[in-house]
């Protein structure tokens, strides 16, 4: 190889280099076009099922491929409080939302405190904590779910809203911790001590100096928690309240209706609305971010 290199020393005329440069540019452009086409085709494939749902939310056909004319039945029944399916869907949606908010908030508080504490532990204890924190990330969700069911069975407690929240916390806390940890590593340790020396109380130094530094990590931990919790099926299915009223989140509700037969057509309009909301939030977030970047 090395011998070849010496032989290959550039010894060309100007015209030729120019032409080869042009050729190179052309080739680069072609490459870029191919690359981006590939990416866009993959995106299209990934969005096909969602686009199908959106398209068929404007007809009341039960089976795909049987377009029964444009109508807004999916939407009008979804917002009809007397429709049984609509009631079930909105109740499931509300359950999903409150469980996600409560579990993520608790996870964020407990996980952030845990991460801060772990940061100041000795090496050995820190390693032990990190290992325990890895368990739920590496472990299969279904094993965690079954183990929680067994814990509650062992304690002779029925599964309830409490076990559901605990289940979602087990799922999400590790992600809060691993999101806060890098921010703690980056933090300037002298700042906290300076605040203490200048007379801040312990809690004052914690909340006014340390927490603001960690805020981006805490926020992304919270967002990941929400994402995981909203989308969760397995842990919810296992730890959801078993007594009293039929408790369903969106995942378990859809899975349950599928087992019984066809899913209600209102799910299509519901998903479309969620999708539009997510896209709107994404666009808003990008615009705000771009503005911030421009200001800096």
């Amino acid at each position: 190889m090395e011998k070849e290199l010496v032989m290959n020393a550039p010894n060309m005329e100007m015209e030729e280099t120019n032409r080869s440069l042009q050729r190179k540019e052309k080739r680069e452009k072609a490459k870029k076009a191919v690359a981006l086409t590939f990416v866009w085709i993959m995106l299209l494939v990934m969005y096909l099922p969602i686009m199908y749902l959106i398209l068929y939310s404007f007809t009341d056909a039960n089976v795909i491929g049987k377009w029964q004319g444009f109508n807004l039945d999916c939407y009008s029944t979804l917002f009809n409080p007397k429709n049984a399916f609509a009631q079930q869907i909105w109740e499931a949606a509300w359950n999903t939302l409150w469980v996600a908010i409560v579990a993520s908030t608790l996870s964020t508080v407990l996980g952030t405190a845990g991460a801060i504490g772990m940061h100041f532990l000795g090496k050995k204890f820190k390693a032990v904590f990190n290992f325990a924190n890895e368990i739920p990330i590496v472990n299969a969700e279904i094993v965690m779910a079954l183990s929680l069911v067994i814990l509650f069975a062992w304690l002779k407690l029925p599964t309830s809203a409490f076990s559901l929240i605990i289940g979602h916390m087990v799922l999400t806390i590790p992600f809060v911790v691993i999101n806060v940890q890098p921010k703690l590593e980056q933090m300037d340790p002298s700042l906290y001590e300076a605040a203490m020396d200048l007379g801040a109380s312990r809690s004052g130094a914690l909340f006014k100096v340390m927490i603001p530094d960690l805020l981006p990590g805490i926020f992304s931990g919270f967002m990941i928690s929400m994402t995981l919790s909203l989308d969760d099926f397995v842990i919810t299915e296992f730890t959801k309240p078993s007594e009293g009223m039929d408790f369903q989140t969106v995942s378990t509700y859809v899975q349950g209706t599928l087992a019984k037969g066809a899913i209600p057509i209102q799910i299509r309009s519901f998903t479309t609305i969620i999708f539009v909301l997510i896209v709107a939030v994404m666009i808003g977030y990008t615009i705000v971010n771009n503005r911030k970047a421009k200001k800096i």
Binding site: P49, I64, S251, T271
Partner: peptide, 17 residues
Amino acid sequence: LPMWINFVIRTIATKQL
């Protein structure tokens, strides 16, 4: 982005597709 759509719903949509 598709991760934010419930995965059970996405799976069912995939099946019908």
